[in-house]
Write a protein that binds this DNA or RNA. Structure first.
Lengths: 292, 292
DNA sequence: GATCATTTGTGAATTATTGCACAGAAGAAG
DNA sequence: CTTCTTCTGTGCAATAATTCACAAATGATC
């Protein structure tokens, strides 16, 4: 089986006319070119080059073979050009996976400014269950509330998500004992914010359950009761106000994960910086200016 | 600068779908294939392959690059085929098919001088029925007495085969009415020389039939009777003499046929020239210095 | 004709690549 | 659910390739 690298070196020798010239162009020793061409001759059982003291002209057979190999050279150059084009287009779309609320309310509002600064990078944003593993075929980057356990991932803590209890002003004015609550359904009882909610019920009822925060927020806005929302959702909703609580609400870390190989590309680094900045501002790791 | 061998290994991985399958086909370790492909990815700054625990599917970029590299594979295979063709022509054996008498008496005696002039070309000479089609698997060149009807063959008229009636001197001195004749068997009654023979019998008997000219010549030499032989056979035999005849004997053209693609090779051209020269001298198309 | 510059070939030291052996993961089979 | 088979990744020893240094030959220059 021919070593294609032998073909490559032969191709350059054919074009330049000497081992030394070919070696200079290839960036190797002239002896290496000589040995590679000799190896090709042995593979093909053909005499390709006449070896003279100061030059190495092709034989007739060498010329015939060189014509075909020249086409390979042309293709190899096409591969490089295509690769350069793909490098640009390959990093043009960065796919982000994040918990739905984080995606929609924390990240999406800032995509406009990101795009303005980086028109050559397109973001694709997808909501995902908060503990879903990063899947290479679905996303390039993931924001998670649980620290991933997979080895060999790049993992950075980029923010702290704080929660609070929110209701309408009308609901907030009612006696605390009369308050009703909105929660996740039972399958999500393990979530820190759900555990916290159950710990402050003090006998008061959960009268509505929803599977995502959007539904809970809408129910709260409708005056149904009080819901535990992330501060970036609750504080940003003019119809809702925070309610006082006896126990400090939970804080959950936000983690950014990526595969190390793709995280090295410039576009990926740009997007990772953007996410870290946005989330770091909205959900700083160390609380500042936000009342406890 | 891309290592072309990296491209080669990537090409096989692209086609087979796994490092292990590619390794088997290439005859190397799977680790080597993995490293080669990683090297290519680094050279191109592209992610070509998703590395899963049990398979290595191509990325979209990998598929794009693989299409170009597949063309290189095709060219590499062309290089090998071309090289095999060049090896054969370099150590040329040219196979000739000719009517047995032409082969043995017209061509074979000159092979010695041909070999002296062209020690790098070996001739393989085979007798064949005179109307046998040129068969690529059996002969590279054919000499025929009937113009071939196949299209796409190279066909050249290279000589004219003349016949005469020959017998021993003792037989020649007998009264013409007492002469007996030697002929082909009935299956060859369509041959021009057999038709001619029957036309001059004038009631005299055919007392021996043979299927080839050698047998007829040997029978004539034994004094059995008169036989119709090509002049290059009869005139060259000191035991035989021409007999006078009332009707001019037949003349049959000699045709050289070959496939156009192989007839372009230098060795083939050399042999074709040799045959045209030999047959042109012994059986000139236009009679000269030969008595009627 | 002598000298210089450049090329090719080759032995040996240095460097890179490959194969080997093993571990971990996942799909198939029982 | 357990076991087996096959695949990929990786550290290290073995092997192969390359570089280095030198010699010989040739064409150009003086």
């Amino acid at each position: 089986m021919i070593d294609w690298q032998d073909l490559h070196y032969f191709s350059v020798l054919a074009r330049t006319g000497s081992l030394s010239a070919a070696a200079r162009e290839l960036g190797v020793d002239h002896a290496t070119v000589g040995r590679r061409v000799a190896s090709l001759e042995q593979s093909l059982s053909l005499h390709l080059v006449d070896r003279l003291p100061r030059r190495s002209p092709l034989t007739a057979e060498g010329t015939a073979i060189a014509e075909l190999v020249a086409e390979m050279t042309s293709l190899s150059q096409s591969v490089e050009r295509r690769a350069r084009g793909l490098v640009v287009s390959a990093t043009a779309t960065v796919r982000i996976s994040a918990p739905p609320a984080v995606a929609a309310r924390l990240i999406a509002p800032h995509v406009v400014e990101f795009h303005r600064e980086h028109p050559d990078i397109m973001l694709a944003l997808a909501g995902a269950a908060q503990n879903a593993a990063l899947d290479r075929s679905e996303a390039d980057l993931a924001v998670r509330m649980i620290r991933p356990t997979e080895k060999d991932l790049l993992i950075r803590r980029i923010g702290a998500m704080r929660f609070a209890l929110y209701a309408t002003r009308e609901q907030a004015e009612r006696p605390p004992a009369a308050l009703a609550f909105i929660a996740y359904d039972a399958t999500l009882d393990h979530l820190a914010q759900q555990v916290w909610l159950r710990s402050i019920l003090a006998g008061r009822p959960i009268i509505f359950q929803a599977s995502d925060l959007f539904g809970q927020q809408e129910a709260a806005r409708a005056g149904l009761g009080a819901a535990v929302l992330p501060c970036f959702m609750g504080d940003g909703d003019s119809m809702l106000v925070r309610l006082p609580v006896d126990k400090p609400p939970p804080v959950r870390d936000l983690w950014l994960t990526a595969y190390p190989d793709v995280s090295r590309s410039p576009a990926m680094r740009t997007v990772m910086t953007f996410l870290a900045d946005i989330i770091g501002r909205e959900c700083p790791i160390r609380a500042s200016r936000s009342p406890e």
